[in-house]
Design a protein around this nucleic acid. Sequence first.
DNA 1: CGGAATATTGATCAAGATCAAAGCGAGTGG
DNA 2: CCACTCGCTTTGATCTTGATCAATATTCCG
Lengths: 222, 222
Amino acid sequence: MLTQAMPSTIRRDIARPRVSTLALAGAIEQMGAPMSYARNSEIYGENEAADYLYKVISGTVRTYKILNDGRRQVGAFYSAGDMFGVEVGDTHTFSAEAITEVKVLVIKRSSVIAAAQRDNAVARQLWSLTGRELQRVQNHILLLIKTAQERVAGFLLEMASRAGGNEVELPMSRQDIADYLGLTIETVSRTLTQLENSAAIAVPTARRIVLRNRAALAQLSI
Amino acid sequence: MLTQAMPSTIRRDIARPRVSTLALAGAIEQMGAPMSYARNSEIYGENEAADYLYKVISGTVRTYKILNDGRRQVGAFYSAGDMFGVEVGDTHTFSAEAITEVKVLVIKRSSVIAAAQRDNAVARQLWSLTGRELQRVQNHILLLIKTAQERVAGFLLEMASRAGGNEVELPMSRQDIADYLGLTIETVSRTLTQLENSAAIAVPTARRIVLRNRAALAQLSI
DNA sequence: CGGAATATTGATCAAGATCAAAGCGAGTGG
DNA sequence: CCACTCGCTTTGATCTTGATCAATATTCCG
């Protein structure tokens, strides 16, 4: 559910998109209006109409599902540059929440779809976004069938590759990580300690991880 | 890798697709040429060029990846009516094998992409196929975080819903099921026995399962 | 019929969950 | 500024689930 009024510019901007503009790479995000969400606020809920898609400007977002028995499965973490909320059907299959203070571009789905009708490049981009999501979910499956060490190592490498260095500032809690990896917080915590003891990583503060031995981590995350 | 010569009709059929035909629902499969694969033969390999997509006419196909340590993860089972091998990038992300004798329609990817350029309906269909695949992989994730009983019950319900009755003839081996569910064959076998003992299912022969108490199974597969 | 592949069952082991307690750190109010 | 509290994280002890190792049963074919 949108918790803020949509900026008035959004309707004007996307009601008459110019094809020449849309044909450019990154056309979709040009239809967006900026919006902010507070820490832990909901961006949209599972099964809600997927009227908007989103591109993260800053901060981190988690998507998740609550299972019948109360467990939570985190589907993905999205940070600056990532798009989320792109659905082929017309409802969201996950809920989305801001992990930190988050700024996003909010893009009206109907406009993107309309643009895709007219403009092949947009259609192709939309398809490509779904394809990227598919790839990511498939990788997530490969994580979930591994041991705890492999999952945590894989997670750290994934986060580090996004951050682009050997130091990772984790915006999400141990509970978020556990729910993403299909583990408990205790197991995540213990596994981090093991990795630290084996000199693969350092954990100066709970939310900051330094990759000391990437090769060892990669080895683990077979 | 294609293990059979492509029927000569395929080039003629898809080189000049008529737009009027393609605009119809199911346009994509009209570009296909029939082909058969023997039990356990490879249809394509991981990382091969995704030159073709496929629609199952009869039989069952499994897709899978072999992990570094030799384990195999089965990604999906496809049976009559299902399309597989649809990639957004230009290589296959999984390998595909015939579980039984399989008949498929083989459809040239470049022709579909070309048709999608011209015809919006085809582009939309292509997107929709990828979306369906995404949905399926997301459900797979939800299966993988559950207990053995929940996974097996969920699997049986999934198979039954496709077969459309209470009796399921499983074309795949216990090893296939285990590799799909992230379990061992022993656990799959034991779990089936437990479900049989609790009167949720009957197992007249190893490959035939009768759902006796769907509610109990649904309960389990939370 | 015989042999190989597939499936079931049993015994034991280990990884991760669960239950429980203590430690740490950031923000708050006296 | 310090002490206190609340939420998050770590650590410890024990239990449970599913893996592993091993043997037997069944099915499918040539």
